[in-house]
Design a binder for these strands. Structure first.
Lengths: 233, 233
DNA sequence: CGCGCAATTGAGTTATATCAAATACGGTGG
DNA sequence: CCACCGTATTTGATATAACTCAATTGCGCG
């Protein structure tokens, strides 16, 4: 597991005002004046695959907005097993629990190359106190995270291995803008679905043989969503 | 499934000020003046076991604070299977997603006899606009719900049936104040753990034979937490 | 080209689901 | 208080799915 590497850091809220995906991020509803209330640097960071942003139990000094890429939230059990409890993508926040002063509930690890904005917790606390514009935006994040977690239980942790893999692929596919999507390692698929690496591999290989899944290289793939949909219901 | 029955309705915010468990509920941080901003009735309701507060897809006009009892949140899949994604108990909120204007993500159904405060969504919206005191309290609810969901995945949807049942019993036990706790039907246990009713029954019966679980009648039970803890790690 | 890791595949074992039957339990009415 | 009924639970036999362990293949990268 690699440590964090910072490729570039823009440092500052000025860039936020002109952010290309501002409509998607936490600060979408902020006014021009609100940005002037930001007194600590917001850094724009690039992480390579397998980078850990923070780990379970750690004090969270930052909240992270995903600009691009995929991030997994991993939770460890006392007995050593681990489970991926959620995936974060464009517009999602990692480390939300830090806003309440809690330590991290999970490890946050990039799956592929990821671009992330790192916002100091005090910045959000201050903005929250001085402007109400952030509240709706923040509540939508909580809401989205929660419904994501619920879906994870019902869709990815219910039914047989075949259905779970199919639902995961459909989930990854519909999240993507183009017709290809990031295909996780079989080990990660297993950790997401509560099945073994081998089981994930066997189902995946079967889908490929049937022509419903086509790997495109570089950890990307295409699926026949129609066919896979029929597997799940 | 029974419809809602209202045994008593206190109607009004006056009672809230003197609520016996106010330190646990959403309005813990409100000032005396804040209560005067409440212009719609908050009803104190009693539900019998198996009552549905609302169902998935329904518009949420209220948020519900659990005063006592247990409530299950059930999510239905298109193929007809259903899964219990969370349990709510004293101090928890049902229908949080209604605050953002969304329809209900789940069915909310009482497991045992439950006492609940029903708060109109506009009341919370108004308070939120006029006083910042609610924000922390509300965020803690989101945070708690989310970590509850994460735990549900890692503890109750991971490992073999035996471990899952053990973890569920431990969870129900530690939530309880006295040394007894509510023991769900095997069917509900199955829906919580992603296993069949029969599997839940077989494990439960085995724990009983070993003396680690003692049913006390009236859907209540006692466990040897020490022994069960050893089963999970 | 070959090294190392990921993915695949297969055989054997175990756990869980499935189906069916028997038993226990709670509530109701006599 | 007891008998009865419907439902939940338990139990068993069998089928099936998933896990485990081990070996092999494939692939990306230096």
């Amino acid at each position: 597991m690699k440590e964090i590497t910072i490729d570039k850091a823009w440092r500052g809220a000025e860039r936020c005002k002109n952010c290309a995906i501002r409509h998607l991020v936490l600060f979408s509803d902020l006014s021009h004046q609100d940005f002037d209330r930001i007194h600590q640097p917001i850094d724009d960071l690039e992480y390579e695959p397998g980078t850990r942003l923070y780990h379970q139990g750690e004090e969270l000094r930052y909240v992270y907005t995903v600009r691009s890429g995929l991030i997994k939230l991993v939770q460890h059990l006392p007995n050593g097993t681990q489970r991926i409890v959620r995936l974060l993508r464009q517009g999602d926040l990692a480390g939300l629990e830090g806003l309440g002063g809690q330590v991290a509930d999970h490890d946050a690890v990039t799956l592929d190359h990821a671009s992330v904005c790192r916002i100091p917790v005090p910045v959000i606390r201050d903005l929250q106190r001085e402007t109400p514009n952030l509240h709706d935006s923040l509540m939508r994040r909580w809401q989205k995270a929660l419904s994501g977690a619920d879906n994870w239980i019902t869709r990815l942790s219910t039914g047989n291995a075949r259905q779970r893999v199919a639902r995961l692929l459909l989930l990854l596919d519909e999240a993507s803008t183009d017709d290809s999507f990031f295909l996780p390692t079989r080990e990660d698929m297993g950790a997401m679905l509560g099945i073994t690496t081998e089981s994930a591999s066997k189902v995946t290989a079967d889908f490929r043989r049937r022509g419903w899944l086509k790997p495109l290289g570089g950890h990307r793939a295409w699926i026949d969503a129609r066919a896979l949909q029929e597997e799940v219901d």
